[in-house]
Amino acid sequence: MIVDVEHLRRDYVVRRRAGRFARTRHVVTAVDDVSFSIAPGECLGYIGANGAGKSTTIKMLMGILLPTAGRVRICGLEPVAQRTVLARRVGAVFGQRSQLWWDLPLADSFRLLGAIHRLPEALWRSRLRECADQLELDELFPTPVRELSLGQRMRGEVAAALLHSPELLVLDEPTIGLDLLSKERLRGFLARERTERGTTILLTTHDLTDIERLSDRILVIDHGRLAFDGTLPALVSRVGAERVLVVDLVEPAAPLADVPGTVLRTVEAGGLRQHLAFRPEQTTAAAVVAAVAGRVQLRDLAITEPDIEDVVRRLYLSGG
């Protein structure tokens, strides 16, 4: 196992002001009795609402936060005690914390990281070429990092995390704030990195599409506890989350009330746009589209996915 976590717990001591001088002391448990493991080559999606304990878990996995209780092994190492050894075998991308040197050209950051990871010149050169080709970095090399757009910088961050060919890549909200095209590019690259090199990936995200495109397994953390461990379809069916097919018609039509396996949610613009909800375990998107297309002439269609916060909320309501 690349990642092995058993009964992990983390408490924070929080002092709040109570009155002019008094402070009261609270213990808040951010992560509570979490156990999971990740096999080599797996891609695990780690999801949960803001403040559910995702970042706390990841900090403990990376050795920058000490667990209150429980056991963590990454690549067989103990993260806090063996942090610098571990850092050579793990790569990390934190959406908000840059690994790059903001006042230097992007190329210089890679030279520095090569030196810091003590990569032999030839290995560094070939690996950088690979990353630069796939992430289209060459044109960005002379630009100081502070002048890069968010999407450009994120490509740089991912290359920086992969430069030393880590066994495990940890991504904390890698697509947050990116435009659709940049998101898609990044997902494509990560998927290739995984299939071609067998890199294990752990990913936190708010975007279900990231999970769909990349992960075979997801963990849901809620209020510090593990609420779900399984595949995305299993999660969706368990909470009964709905996908919604939105169709734009060429001509206004009567409400499509009786398409098999669907429930008509709303009708807009006098029948020109209609929303049909369906549950993935009962029917497929293709079957619904085919049924609709058999009755009316379609101009455009879109499928909206259940929102992650919503899925988590439902999971919680359904009794975890």
Binding site: K59, M62, G63, I64, R83, T84, V85, A87, R88, V90, A92, F94, Q96, R97, S98, Q99, L113, I116, H117, R118
Partner: peptide, 14 residues
């Protein structure tokens, strides 16, 4: 505060 220190902790040097 800026997270730069955490970034340092993620690199293989003291």
């Amino acid at each position: 505060r800026s997270g730069q220190f955490d970034a340092m902790l993620l690199r293989p040097l003291p």
